[in-house]
Design a protein around this nucleic acid. Structure first.
Lengths: 341, 341
DNA sequence: TATTACAATTTAAACGTTTCTATTTTTCTT
DNA sequence: AAGAAAAATAGAAACGTTTAAATTGTAATA
């Protein structure tokens, strides 16, 4: 078994200096003379002393760790968000614990508790689609630890949030389609327990209304199984069975759109000549399919970075008993027009 | 500020029972009577007592946390590996800290130190491409904490490893191409500091030799910038400038192959009629491009799961001073033949 | 030179567990 | 019913820091 790590006591013993002085020297407190500080730092380096962060955490109630819960990590968008989180955290000397809820509210609740127990300094959360999430959140998070919600938020939960304007993004996309001349536009959406599904649906609807196209609920298809590609495929099939005059599909995710591609491809419907397809999120896949897919660019890395920035700021403020108010940051999106529309 | 958490002392005070008994009751030790255990558990539940894991870690030197370093999280393959890691860890009550090396050896070293300081119980690592990584690893990891290498390993580093047989997988892919009748097969590989780049190259070469096709180093292109899609594109361009009779490309990653697709597409070279393309890893993209790409299926989730399983096993053994020897697990790959070959 | 102020250092307690050892209580023998 | 053995509980130290309060040393002031 490995040698014992050097502790502050070892240094103290070797130097015959009290450990409080050692601690202060290491942490750069002003109240230790240059002479002793030099001596201490020198030996610390020589013995490769690294403060034991666990002990420090116990004493200070800070772990320099933040917890992240996302529905899934195998996800172009979330993986980029996580990239942003990890990088911003690292820049601020925080480490990141990642958990996947798999869209299950119970698991999410359990994980929240886990993180609290682990005493993370703050939590970054993109909530699951299930209902009753707010109550669960409230149960776990009776103030005391900063939480920032991102992307999949709960509107009424009182904390900082980083999102995009889903409604506007969807509105813009559908307006674009309309201005391109498409009139019978179907919407392949998500379950309406998720705020961003709701907002994207609302944007779709509003765009129709504002352009004097009657909104027809029959043209809205919800993906049933949370299995995007397959659901897109199935719904495309269903849609074509039910309607013959659709000229465009606005999908809530690129993956659903890919499913649509697959079915259209199979039965030889040409995109965009026969039916146009518009995706959402700008996953890597959207840029490599044929035809290249039009989609909504959703800042992902930036979202992770910003959410982390806010969280760390709140952690610091809370530690110093500085008042702060919750922020709501809306990141800009843009349409990426490619060949599918 | 939130209420103070309940501690073992609170329970002890309320119940007038010593905290050692409380601790034992909570942890299910046999040496406490049923009667008192019940009493303790009841109050613990009532006051929502959760043992402070930091304090426990300080005492036991266990954090129930494992550290993971991968080159990047925004990566179809690695994200799936991480999925496997997180799930297996969670099943064993471990949390996972994730760090990205960005293929930079210094950062990797720094992160290794970070994790050690954080006292993670074990480390899962997929090393960066840079040279000198072994020395750095040795420096940081003088035994004392279990490490399992996966996918991108260092052959000579003494620890458990979970990999695929890169050489064989590449060999099989190239043999397949040859049996399909392709004769002038180029290889788009990676820098030869990475073991899997080396092995895939070796497999390519061996397949040619075993099939009586002369190996021609001019047909091997290394991606220069670690920017797969673009590198694939650039090398495709370069290759066609230098050779006119290539009939197939075996790429070391799907992303490089996608780059090749892009260039071929641009200059109107038909896949597979003019030139076939074979990828590696079975990223989502490979299944949605046109034509669908033949590739090597690389178990990703399983790799993460297995590596974690081994790591946790070693952690346990080490804690109990049980001897163990390092394992080398080679996960099976398979060819996925689609339309590009 | 005594007094005061300030700088440097030390002491001691605390953070919340776990676990070894000691003590008390209960149960079992004879 | 006394003594031994076993079971249950308690005590105390330890894990490695941080920090408020106390102490010592040094320099400045009158």
């Amino acid at each position: 078994m490995g040698l014992k790590r050097t502790t502050i006591n070892d240094l103290a013993a070797k130097l015959k200096i009290s450990k409080s002085t050692i601690s202060k020297a290491i942490k750069g407190y002003p109240d230790v003379s240059e002479k002793t500080r030099k001596k201490i730092l020198k030996l610390a380096k020589k013995l490769n002393y690294k403060p034991n962060s666990i002990a420090s955490s116990l004493r200070t109630h800070q772990t320099k760790t933040i917890g992240v819960i996302v529905p899934s990590v195998v996800h172009d968008f979330f993986s980029k968000v996580i990239d942003g989180i990890i990088q911003e955290a690292e820049n601020n000397n925080y480490l990141v614990i990642i958990l996947q809820s798999g869209e299950q509210a119970d698991l999410e609740e359990k994980q929240l508790n886990l993180l609290k127990n682990k005493q993370v300094d703050g939590i970054l959360l993109s909530v699951s689609n299930e209902t009753g999430v707010k109550e669960r959140l409230n149960k776990v998070l009776e103030k005391g630890i900063p939480v920032v919600l991102f992307d999949k938020i709960i509107k009424s939960f009182d904390c900082s949030k980083v999102i995009i304007d889903d409604k506007k993004a969807a509105y813009d996309a559908v307006c674009y389609l309309i201005h391109k001349g498409y009139k019978r536009i179907a919407h392949f959406g998500g379950v309406l327990t998720a705020q961003n599904s709701i907002d994207r649906f609302l944007g779709y609807k509003q765009a129709l209304i504002d352009n004097n196209i009657p909104y027809n609920p029959d043209l809205v298809y919800v993906n049933p199984n949370n299995d995007d590609i397959n659901d897109g495929y199935l719904n495309a099939q269903k849609m074509l069975k039910e309607h013959t005059n659709i000229d465009a599909v606005f999908a809530i995710t690129d993956l659903i759109a890919i499913g649509v591609y697959k079915y259209f491809n199979k039965i030889n419907i040409k995109i965009p000549e026969d039916i146009a397809v518009f995706g959402f999120s700008n996953w890597l896949v959207s840029s490599v399919v044929t035809p290249k897919m039009s989609t909504v660019n959703q800042p992902s890395f930036e979202m992770g970075k910003k959410a982390t920035e806010i969280l760390i700021d709140e952690i610091k403020k809370m530690n110093n008993d500085i008042e702060f108010s919750f922020q709501k940051v809306v990141l800009p999106t843009s349409l990426i027009i490619r060949e599918s529309t």
